[in-house]
Amino acid sequence: MSSHVTLQDIRKCLMENCMLTTPPENIQDDTPLFGPNSLGLDSIDALQISLAIETTFQTPIKDPELARQILATPGSIRDWVNKQKSL
């Protein structure tokens, strides 16, 4: 496992692609990205992130149904990217 993706990498990816008002330290593994009590991202952000995941980590999310699940929290993105990279 050469390049392991960490929470920090995901934070960076989020900061670069979305207009976030929250400081990155406040983004935890299990901070929801969408919905109530979340970072308040919208569908445009979702598109941006999924594109960014594809270009940065070379792990495209092909299925929109799965994308919704994978983009739930920074932790779920990180786990998914790491698993895809190692398969």
Binding site: D30, L66, S76, D79, K83, Q84
Partner: peptide
């Protein structure tokens, strides 16, 4: 708890 397809987990 993780889904078998790795797309979704809850810690």
């Amino acid at each position: 708890f993780v889904l078998g397809n790795s797309a979704g987990s809850h810690r």
